[in-house]
Amino acid sequence: MTKPSVGGLESPDLSSHDATAHESAPHVPVFAGAAREELDQLLTRYPTKMAALLPALWIVQRERGWVSEDSMAEVSDLLDLTPAYVKGVVTFYTMYHQHPVGKYFIQVCTTSPCGICGAEEVVKSLLRHTGTGDLGLTSRDGKFTVIEVECLGACGFATPVMINEEFIESVTPEKVPGILEDLA
């Protein structure tokens, strides 16, 4: 039996991170096979189905790279919720992508503790070296999206940068090119 993962963390499979997916293609269910088993296991942890919503959305994002309206509808069916309710939850939390993002989704903390240690320079360096141009945009090759985020809970290691599920500490503008090269 598949062991349920914590927030879909156990097997980050980047090859399925599909930045070119379109809503118009027919929806292929996320919760079939192993993912369905995983969800069934998760449901045993909570007294209500609704409580499995955040974990279910994590599985969607792991499998598809983002959370589409079709996926929200699928999840709502499985958990006896309405699609509108699920969308309300998805939009509350910052970590669920409501649109496809780059293969490497880069989050940089710029809250004051990091800010006074030079986080803005790290952001500028990332924007320059990824060729994304501006915050929230995806580079033409579909590889990179860079966003600013609030405190990542690693303030003593300014500036922390998250690339997909990987957490990199003490990033300086000078280290950025090397970090990006390691990804390629």
């Binding site: 914590v6 927030g7 963390l9 156990e10 990542l152 998250m162 990987e166 957490f167």
Partner: peptide
Amino acid sequence: IRGEFTEPLLRMERAVR
């Protein structure tokens, strides 16, 4: 656990298991 804490999440899940 906050969603951004990927390493703590894995460490805690491993310890619980």
